[in-house]
Design a protein around this nucleic acid. Structure first.
Lengths: 241, 241
DNA sequence: TTATCATGGGTTGTCCGACAATCTCAAGAT
DNA sequence: ATCTTGAGATTGTCGGACAACCCATGATAA
């Protein structure tokens, strides 16, 4: 029988420990945004490890967006941008096998609510931007421009909500829906005219501050997107690319 | 005047190029999930760089969740788990200064919709789990258990929606709201009883498949959470920790 | 025969030392 | 005062070395 239990030994590689140690200092606030980290040489001394290990640890932090190379290539603490968070999340989800159906379903559930909020919160210049986007979509001949405009419409609404958490999530959806639509919507004039019209109705509702109408038309807008996808006879359950 | 324009030279560090090269092979599908990557030595040969650079490049991939050390410590391609995606996103948002107000607002906007979907989709055993959680919340004396139960309730609903994209986003919110509430809800019996009741109403609506009631009570549930926060007289615009 | 053990080669984790490229900053030149 | 130059510091990359570790193969014991 066992008389005493030993805890499993600490077998993390050193470079992970280095990464964690620095991360700890950052998230705890001891190293605020913009603070300069010690040089690699100093980190070696302080941790008592070699530069190779320190550098590998730094790479982990670099990828997670907590530090970047600043002036004189010194390491600087920074906060990841929303767009980076969204890009990372959407890339991971895509690689994890997310399907168009999942993305669309989420979009269809969340964006009408976002539109509702936008009706009470969107700034006038954001509404102006939406009108420009709508015009560009109407003029678009090229398929890429069509998709870009459709996505930009969402993006502008999301950005105008004055909520970083919501923006990060909606932006992730925008990226995924864009990547998905780009491979599908070539020439689907019927779907396009419907999208143009839905956008105009949404813009009108936002301008009037009518929450219900904004949500209602955004919901129809989502249906139009789905229709475009179906017209192209694409597989809803295929991985987005 | 300048007679010819040169493109800016490629001054990415080698380890970044290594990382990108491997990432490209993975996202393109050439290296499917579970595939073994070449050994570090082989990568050195193929890329024509030293092990130091290869290893630093690998760290970038490691942190982004695209590879992990498999049997015999060989590198294996893998898909990041939803929980990791959510953890990364929420950590980044928290570090980026997200406030309780932002998190709650997003929660309040999205979760009623999630409940609506859950009413038509949640499996019976998930509903059973919700009942267990509600019971545990009712019995809870300890503040931590209270918070855990409240979060677990959300988590179970999110997990039952059969949609990885939605799950990732809702789970991010769960993590952030949990971290936030943990620092605030100590003993707020009034808020707790309201939360218990709201959960019960939601469970009943889900069981009956009543979308509107599920959304309605989830919405009130969100209000109760906010009330708990206000009872604790916490600053809504402070960074979540 | 089957189970256990030892051995050896291959791979990773860590260390050390070296050097070119680049950046900072301050002294010196115009 | 501004520009140039040069020393010093720091990062990026290289090369080599070795211990720890993992796996498979074969040897040994039950």
């Amino acid at each position: 029988m066992s008389s005493h239990k030993f805890k499993t030994l600490d077998r993390e590689p050193v470079y992970v420990k280095v990464s964690r140690a620095i991360e700890q200092e950052i998230v705890s606030g001891a190293l605020p945004e913009g603070a300069l980290l010690p040089t690699e040489g100093e980190l070696c001394e302080q941790f008592g490890v070699t530069r190779s290990s320190v550098r590998e640890g730094i790479r982990l932090l670099e990828q997670s967006g907590l530090v970047e190379r600043g002036p004189a290539k010194r390491l600087v603490v920074r906060a990841p941008k929303i767009s980076e968070i969204a890009a990372t999340a959407s890339r991971s989800l895509a690689h994890g096998g997310a399907t168009f159906r999942e993305v669309w379903e989420t979009l269809a559930l969340f964006y009408p609510q976002a539109a509702r909020l936008a009706a009470t919160r969107l700034a006038p210049d954001a509404i102006g931007e939406l009108k420009d986007i709508n015009q560009r979509l109407r003029d678009s001949e090229n398929g890429d421009v069509t998709v870009d405009s459709a996505v930009a419409f969402f993006q502008t609404i999301a950005a105008g909500l004055d909520n970083r958490v919501m923006l990060a999530m909606l932006q992730s959806l925008n990226i995924m829906i864009g990547a998905s639509l780009a491979h599908v919507i070539g020439e689907t004039p019927r779907a396009k005219t419907r999208i143009v019209e839905a956008q105009q109705k949404i813009i009108a509702a936002l301008e009037a501050g009518d929450e219900d109408k904004a949500a209602e038309w955004m919901s129809r807008h989502m249906d139009d997107l789905m229709r475009g996808y179906q017209v192209a006879k694409a597989d809803l359950d295929a991985r987005i690319l």
